[in-house]
């Protein structure tokens, strides 16, 4: 009990930080998209439009909290909570600095994979509970997409695990003291990046909500803060995947001169920006292209990566 109590400040700190960051991301994304599209983006509310986040928040809280009469009410309400909970839970194992980590689990990586699998439920349940054909189609697409991409997402990380010999994320960061894993695991990094995009349902993998064909996919019927939770969940997902890339492939908090937390956030921020850049630049995939790409390209590549890494590890460190 005491141990939990002593960790409460860290838990509160991490929670506040990631949720605030995700809110700011809304502004950041709109500003960055603006720059890349030769316009300004929100620049009216507060300095640089920063208070746009507050304005949006006020708006979204004031909106009518409407549950369609034809929806499965209980599931409809639970679905958006699931995504927030699972993503926030994942942050528990992320080592922000050597000292700031909520739960230093020795199966931290597995816990992350488990949580991201669970978040698929949110989308599927939302699509199902809305009782709307577009929502259901969105949910179905989401489940297919997440199932497919989780397979090689896990596999792509096994190289890192092999090189470290541990599932503990702290150990993984420590193992990169000399060489970031993005060099030996370049293939694994690319596969994880793509799988991460798909897991967060970001462009070019946003077919579960493809507005051009499915209105808004699984969250068509959602409004007010329930919709807001899906929204925040998505941005939390971006932060999480960016943080995981930093931790797994770019040496986490490690770097010269600056404090570890700063290094961690600089790296994470760059990947967040990369996510937004991809959204600005790439078109959405077709569903069949998505599945083909996942099963026929990425999965074999992940297996090859696994095999080669395994072979190299065996050669370098033959089992005793």
């Amino acid at each position: 009990m005491n141990e939990v109590a002593s960790r409460l400040p860290i838990i509160a700190g991490v929670l506040t930080m990631v949720v605030t960051l995700s809110a700011l991301l809304i502004w950041l994304e709109r500003r960055l998209l603006g720059f890349w599209q030769e316009r300004y983006g929100p620049n009216r509310v507060g300095p640089f439009g920063l208070l746009q986040v507050v304005a949006d928040m006020i708006k979204i809280f004031m909106k009518e909290d409407w549950v369609p009469p034809f929806a499965d009410k209980a599931v409809f309400v639970i679905a958006p909570a699931v995504i927030i909970v699972t993503v926030l839970m994942s942050f528990a194992v992320v080592p922000f600095t050597p000292s700031i980590v909520v739960a230093d689990l020795n199966v931290g990586l597995l816990f992350f994979l488990a949580m991201s699998s669970l978040s698929a439920y949110s989308v599927v349940l939302a699509g199902w509970a809305s009782n709307n054909k577009y929502s259901l189609l969105g949910g179905l697409r989401a489940s297919a997409q997440m199932l497919s991409y989780e397979v090689f997402m896990g596999l792509s990380l096994m190289g890192v695990v092999m090189l470290t010999g541990s599932f503990n994320l702290g150990d993984i960061v420590e193992a990169q003291r000399d060489l970031w894993f993005c060099i030996p695991q370049i293939l694994g990094f690319i596969i994880f990046l793509i799988a991460g995009l798909a897991e967060t349902k970001r462009i070019p993998f946003d077919i579960p909500e493809a507005e051009a064909e499915l209105v808004a996919g699984f969250h068509t019927e959602y409004s007010g803060m329930k919709f807001g939770m899906f929204f925040v969940g998505e941005y939390l997902g971006i932060i999480l995947i960016s943080a995981m890339i930093t931790v797994l492939f770019f040496g986490g908090w490690q770097g010269p001169w600056l404090p570890p937390a700063v290094w961690f956030w600089i790296k994470t921020f760059l990947f967040i920006c990369l996510f937004i850049l991809l959204r600005a630049a790439l078109p959405r995939l077709r569903f069949d292209q998505l599945m083909t790409f996942g099963w026929k390209v990425m999965l074999p590549l992940a297996l090859v990566n696994l095999a080669v890494t395994g072979a190299l590890v065996l050669i370098g460190h033959p089992p005793k």
């Binding site: 960055l32 603006g34 720059f35 890349w36 599209q37 030769e38 316009r39 300004y40 850049l277 600005a280 630049a281």
Partner: peptide, 12 residues
């Protein structure tokens, strides 16, 4: 190319 647009003047 999209990234390079960050350095052009907005038309707004």
């Amino acid at each position: 190319l999209v990234f390079l647009h960050a350095f052009t003047r907005p038309v707004t």
